[in-house]
Simulated scan of single mutants.
Amino acid sequence: MCRWLAYSGSPIMLEDIVYKPDHSLIDQSLHSKLGIETTNGDGFGIGWYGHHDTPAIFKEIGPAWNNRNLRELTSHLRSRMFFAHIRASTGSAVQQTNCHPFRHGRWLWMHNGMIAGFHQIRRELALAVSPGLFSCIEGSTDSELMFFLALSLGLEEDPPGAVARMVGLVEETGQRNGVENPMQMTVAVCNGETLWAFRYSTEGRSRSLFHSADIEGLRALYPGNALVRTASDDARLIVSEPLGDVPEVWIEVPEASYAMVHRSRNEIRPFSPAAVATRS
């Protein structure tokens, strides 16, 4: 499937996270330890917030490990909140519009996992997207459709509630059409101020997800680490798999839960699907 990371905190160079750690996202693109596949070479993308309310994105269909433009960009870009994603397709085409992260207005979204039986229930799910949003869908992935379903179900007003309703809709639709265990996901979504990351699957065996320990504790453990020393107190990383082998740095996000990061607040809360009201 895919590997991803999300950062929130003081502005840092993207290469400090994307390239420099021992088990960086670039290393994971070839040597993933916890993913379904060890290689994630079906495209990549980064999304970051700079001087504007809306984020910028850069996507390519080739593998991340040998992309000179990605290395060049990350060595010059500094951001307080950014996403990075490497893709292993679950069946949809390898094309730029299918690469993550996805953007709508000030929102970014990325996903690891799949909707089981997607081709069987895709039309029914697509019809649940608000008419005003439907034309914004550019690609053919289940991941992007999940994003626009969540937007249709209130993401901008209540992100956790909207994601719960999106999952509830996917599960109800899948199960009604005979699909066993319809949802498998880790999802990150942000609006430039707050970051949410969800870990959930219908079968209760979700893909891996970790968040970094608080910076104050890491400073005590690793006083000589330059990145740890200069990061702000509210700096947090959420990752598909740890960027190194030091266990104190990485805390697993529990099954059926979500993390919320907003400046100095870092909370883990339970997550469960929610029913969607039937249209009259």
Rank of each mutant, 00 (worst) to 15 (best):
E157A: 14
F44T: 08
M114I: 06
Q175G: 03
G132D: 14
G45V: 05
R78N: 06
T141L: 03
S8P: 00
H211M: 09
S24Y: 08
A6I: 15
S206C: 10
F198R: 03
M114F: 09
E60P: 00
M183Q: 05
R207Q: 10
L125N: 01
P223R: 09
K33C: 09
G41L: 05
W4C: 10
P21I: 14
S208H: 08
S92P: 03
G174A: 11
I57D: 03
M1V: 15
S240M: 06
H100P: 04
A150T: 02
C2W: 05
N112R: 02
R103I: 12
E267G: 01
I137H: 02
S208M: 05
R265W: 03
L5T: 09
L145C: 07
S264L: 12
S264D: 13
G244Y: 05
Q175K: 14
S29Q: 10
S140G: 08
F102Q: 02
Y19W: 15
G43F: 10
H31F: 14
L77G: 03
H100L: 06
P159V: 02
L34Y: 10
H262L: 11
F118C: 05
S89G: 09
M13H: 14
T278K: 11
R207D: 07
Y49M: 00
I137S: 01
P63R: 07
G161I: 02
L125M: 08
C136F: 13
V170W: 01
T97N: 11
S272N: 04
H85Y: 04
G168R: 03
H119I: 03
G217N: 12
F118R: 02
V179W: 04
Y49A: 00
A56S: 15
G117R: 09
R265D: 13
S32V: 10
S75P: 00
D233N: 09
H52P: 00
L149D: 00
R68A: 15
G41I: 11
P223H: 08
G168A: 10
E255S: 02
K20D: 12
P21K: 10
R263P: 01
D27K: 11
S264P: 06
N98V: 07
A188I: 15
T74F: 02
F198G: 03
R87G: 07
A164L: 05
K20V: 14
I121Y: 04
M260W: 05
E72N: 09
S280Y: 01
G117P: 04
P21R: 11
Q95T: 12
L243W: 08
Y7C: 04
F134T: 10
A274L: 11
F210W: 13
P254H: 12
S32L: 07
P101K: 05
E124S: 14
L169Y: 01
Q96Y: 01
E156L: 03
R263W: 06
R103G: 01
W196Q: 07
D142M: 10
H23G: 04
S24V: 12
N181L: 11
G62T: 14
R205G: 02
G139H: 09
A188T: 15
G113H: 06
V239I: 12
H100K: 07
V129T: 09
V239Y: 06
G192A: 08
S32P: 05
M183S: 13
R103M: 11
M114P: 00
R165G: 01
S240G: 15
G45A: 09
I215A: 07
D53E: 13
L243N: 07
S143A: 13
A213E: 14
E138M: 14
N225R: 06
P160N: 09
N112T: 11
S206R: 01
S280E: 06
H211T: 13
Y222K: 12
D214N: 11
G62Y: 05
